[in-house]
């Protein structure tokens, strides 16, 4: 390694500090808004740090009472979890066999390339038929209906991630298992999946983040507490005439918490996934 001059060191630390501030400040401000008394948020100039901490918004959002804002918010959280859970689970179920098949049969690789092309389609190009289709089957405003749509977003790239995971598992293991008389599904279940568990977990969490973030389809296809997801619910809070900025911020903090935690936990895996899954897709 090259020896750094003092000037270079100073520059590096200054840049690192600036970057840290840039990354953290907006998020920190969201949190500060959520615990500041309403008057602080309309003061001029702004009060940057609250003198008294106001947790009432969190209490309100997290209290399940019939016909309350808390119920609406918690129902949205529940729906987001349900939809994302359904979609991620189903995505793994359809992606595992497909990924394995492609991994063991490189001549099929082009089919995954073709599937990844679906990522290029803007949701607006599919929205009208999907709306009519869901209506036809009575799946509008249902977590299952939305889950099916999300499944189609998650499955192709889950298959990609899994494929690169499967590629890393030597084929000899399978061959010897086969000689011992193991059936195809047994090989997959007992041998491959445990070996690919880390990839599987990465793919699942990654898919979860995508599903949690989705807004457009949820906006169109859900209408009330039975299916409305968290992204739509907080956009409603923010777009409506809620007077208290802190309330909006608190809802944002709560909605952001799960993905932020997941992101921190799997930071390395996300980058690996983006480059490996991304290289090919």
């Amino acid at each position: 390694m090259e020896r750094r001059s003092l000037l270079a060191s100073v520059l590096i630390y200054a840049a690192a500090l600036a970057l840290a501030v840039l990354l953290l400040l907006p998020i920190l401000w969201l949190f500060v808004m959520s615990i500041s008394p309403a008057a602080d948020l309309t003061a001029k100039p702004l009060r940057w740090w609250p003198e008294t901490v106001d947790l009432s918004r969190y209490r309100m959002l997290l209290t399940w009472e019939p016909n309350s804002m808390g119920q609406a918010f918690l129902a949205a959280l529940r729906n987001s979890l349900t939809v994302a859970g359904l979609a991620v689970g189903a995505a793994l179920v359809v992606a595992v066999p497909a990924a394995w098949a492609v991994s063991r049969n490189p001549r099929l690789e082009w089919s995954l390339y073709a599937l990844i092309l679906t990522y290029m389609l803007p949701p607006v190009a599919l929205a009208v038929p999907l709306y009519l289709g869901l209506a036809r089957f009575g799946l509008l405003n249902s977590t299952v209906g939305l889950g099916i749509i999300y499944l189609s977003m998650l499955a192709p790239f889950t298959a990609w991630l899994l494929k690169s995971g499967f590629d890393a598992i030597p084929r000899d293991i399978e061959a010897s298992a086969k000689l011992d008389g193991a059936r195809l599904d047994q090989i997959l279940r007992i041998l491959i999946l445990p070996l690919a568990a880390p990839t599987l977990a990465t793919a699942a969490l990654f898919a979860l983040l995508l599903a949690w973030d989705e807004f457009f389809y949820a906006l169109l296809f859900t209408s009330d507490q039975r299916a409305k997801t968290i992204t739509v619910a907080i956009a409603d809070v923010a777009g409506g005439r809620v007077a208290d900025y802190g309330q909006i911020a608190a809802a944002g903090v709560l909605a952001a918490l799960p993905p932020l935690l997941i992101g921190l936990v799997m930071q390395r895996a996300i980058v690996a996934g983006l480059t490996s899954g991304g290289v090919k897709g």
Partner: peptide, 21 residues
């Protein structure tokens, strides 16, 4: 590790945050 935070922040929350800012 911090670098992942803005990316993980849901898009809608990001939009609301900046609208407030």
């Amino acid at each position: 590790a911090m670098m992942i935070l803005p990316w993980a922040l849901p898009t809608v929350v990001n939009a609301i945050l900046w609208r407030l800012i």
